Each structure stands twice: as C-alpha cells, then as structure tokens.
Computed example of a mutant assay.
Amino acid sequence: MMRRDVHDKLRARLHEAAGAHEPDRERILARVERGMAEQARPDHRATRPPAYGWLRVVTATAAVAGVLAVGGYAVASAVKEDRPQQTVATSPTPEPPGAKGEKDGPLWSDGSVDPHSNDFWAQSNLRLHTSGQLTALTVRLRVAQTGGVTSTGAWRSLPEDDFTLTVGEKDGFLVYTWVLKEGRTVRAGEWVFAGQYDHERGGRDAKDDSYVMTATAGGEQLSVTGGFAAHDGNDPTPGGDS
C-alpha cells in the first residue's frame, strides 16, 4: 500500500507541473528568426527553398530572356542592314562605243564557257591581257536569258576591293558589270572575270552571250568586245593572229 501511495503522489505532482507550464513565446520566436537568418546566408544549402525564392528566380529569368530576345533582334537587324549588296539593279550604264573586236592596242580579250559547266549550271569566263598599266577599266558580261538563267555568283582574279560589282537583268540579258574604283589601277598581266549562273536543264547555247571591256592606258581610251564562239585556233593573246 505504501508503494502505491508513492506512485499516486508522484503522478499528481507531474500533472500539476504540466498544467502550470506555459510556452516561452519569446524563446520560440527567437529560434524561428535564427533559423530564417541561417537560410538567408549565401553558404546555406536549403533542400527546399521558400516559394517566394522560386518566384524571384522565375521573374529574373523571364526578364533576362526578354532582354536577350530584343538584343538579338537588334543585332540581327544591324547585320542585315550592313551586309553588302553584291547583286543590285542599277540604272543602265551607257554601252562603250568604238569596240574594235578582241584586240585594241595593248589589250587582248577572249570569252569562253568554263569546261566544268553542267546541265544545270554554267560559268562564263572572260580573259583580259594588258601589256601596260590600266588607270580605268569596265568589264561587262551579257548572258542571254535562254530560260531559268539566274545569277549564282561572280569572281575576278584581281583584288575584290578594287572593283564595284553590279548584277541585274536588262533587255533579256543577265548583266554582270565590274568597274575599277577611282584611284585604283590594273598592272600589266593576264586577268580573269567570271560570271556564274543556273539555267534550265540541258545543254545551253551561248551564241547570244557577249562581253565588252573599256579601259584607259597611258591616257588613251581602249575598248574590246567579243562572244563565246570557238576561235578556230586563232589566239587573241600576244603572238596570235587575231
């Protein structure tokens, strides 16, 4: 009986202590604030960041994406505007007068269809030989529109920056025009100008194609012209019987 009484008294005291206990609110709040401060530290690794943190990340990402999108469009537009227009339609340039054929003074010329041309694509080659320095030069290639003739490019063996190139259609011809820039010169030698183009499938007849070149050498105006027919062994270059 005595042992049971002891247990009853102990139980009663525990109930009294539990009933008299009040939570320390200030202490609890302090612990919560301390925990939040630890999460805010840069080196704190939280396994599940608060919802408002994710909202800030998403908002910032969207803003950056918007800036990049606008910036990319502006850059693309600038590049597009600054891109040189190699193929342009220009006002007609007067045809050079007085062309005497494939040879004129120090100038010799020749026109031929490149042997690597095929059933869908061709290249017209113009060969110019000069024995003296040229202070002015205009080269014009005329490719007859025989069906599906569309420019695919052009090149020359002289420096690209020395010439202005225009490509356009006029009177049923695809016309390539190279003009030597003011202040530039062409030294003595042999040079090539070439126009490239697609055409309808099948062999293309170049009988109506032509070229003309005008130049200035030693203060004298010179002009040569020709087509793309075979020369029958006559070489227009120095030493040939043109």
Score class of each variant (00 low, 15 high):
A62C: 06
A40K: 03
S109F: 03
W121T: 08
Y176T: 11
P84C: 06
V79K: 04
R201Q: 13
Q133C: 01
R45N: 10
G195H: 00
G66M: 12
T150Y: 07
T185W: 09
D235A: 06
R83M: 14
P50S: 11
Q145D: 12
L107W: 06
V64F: 06
S223D: 05
E190G: 09
R45H: 13
G233E: 01
R56T: 07
K170R: 15
A78L: 10
P50C: 13
F163C: 03
G147A: 09
T164K: 09
G189D: 03
G71W: 01
P50K: 13
L128I: 03
P236D: 01
L126E: 01
F173P: 15
V175A: 08
G203P: 03
R3A: 04
A46K: 00
V67M: 04
G172V: 08
R45K: 15
H7C: 04
T225N: 05
L126D: 01
V58H: 08
T61S: 05
L180M: 04
A76F: 04
L158S: 14
G98H: 10
T166H: 01
G19L: 05
L55P: 07
G101N: 03
V167E: 12
L158M: 15
N118A: 08
L134Y: 00
G147R: 11
K100T: 13
A17E: 09
P23K: 00
E38D: 15
A69P: 00
H15L: 10
T164R: 09
G148V: 14
P94K: 02
Y211P: 10
T150G: 11
A89S: 15
M36L: 15
T130W: 01
K9I: 08
L128T: 07
T47A: 03
V75M: 10
S242I: 02
T214I: 11
A154M: 07
A99K: 02
D205T: 02
M36Y: 06
R41A: 15
L180P: 05
G53C: 14
G132K: 11
A18M: 09
H199V: 09
G183E: 10
T87I: 12
K100A: 10
A63Y: 02
V6W: 06
A229Q: 12
F193P: 05
P50D: 14
T164W: 03
E182I: 05
G172N: 02
R48M: 07
P106M: 10
H129P: 00
S77W: 00
D8L: 13
G227I: 04
G19P: 00
D24N: 14
T93I: 15
A40P: 00
